[in-house]
Simulated scan of single mutants.
Amino acid sequence: MTWASFYLPVDAQIAAQEPVHYQHPEAPIEPTALPEHALLLDVRSYAEYMAGHLPDAHCLPLPQMAHLVNQMAPDHDAPIVLYCSSGGRAEQALGLLQRMGYKNVRNGGGAIALGKKLGKSIEH
């Protein structure tokens, strides 16, 4: 217990002594959970996409997602897998698409990790 926690109520003193455990957000999907005919959307910038992307993936950068996704995926029930460099932008895109009414959208995580799970190599 540190000197500052001495002035806290007893419950807070106990809480201050307990280690904090952080939960990781939901892990990216496993390959068995991927629909075979899913639309792969790379939500990174066009430059990142051109530096290397998964085969059959379409580039739809996160800033343009809301305006252009209806052209690429007019069916809101169609399976979509999103990916980026690490999964962060894909998670943002996932939330956006869910708010837009898309029902079968998944965060695939980072491009390299998703490629390994799918057995696909990055192409340039």
Rank of each mutant, 00 (worst) to 15 (best):
E36T: 12
G95N: 13
V81C: 04
A16W: 02
E18K: 14
G109F: 03
L40I: 03
A78H: 08
L68R: 11
E18D: 05
H37P: 01
R99H: 05
L60T: 03
I80M: 05
T2Q: 15
L68S: 14
C59E: 01
E91H: 13
A90W: 00
Y46F: 09
P79N: 13
P19A: 12
A66H: 05
M50H: 11
P35L: 12
Q17C: 15
M100N: 03
V105H: 05
Q17V: 15
S5N: 10
N107G: 08
A38E: 06
G108P: 00
H76N: 04
W3R: 10
R44W: 07
G108V: 02
V69W: 00
V20W: 04
L94K: 04
Y46R: 15
A113V: 07
N104K: 11
V105N: 08
K116G: 07
H58V: 13
A4K: 07
L41V: 07
I80S: 02
T32P: 00
Q92P: 01
C59R: 00
L62R: 04
R106C: 07
A113N: 09
A16V: 03
A57C: 05
Y49P: 03
H53Q: 11
V20T: 13
H53D: 06
D42W: 01
E91T: 12
M1K: 08
E48S: 15
E18L: 14
C84R: 00
N70I: 09
Q92G: 03
Y7S: 13
L96R: 04
R99I: 04
E48D: 13
E91W: 08
P63F: 12
L68N: 11
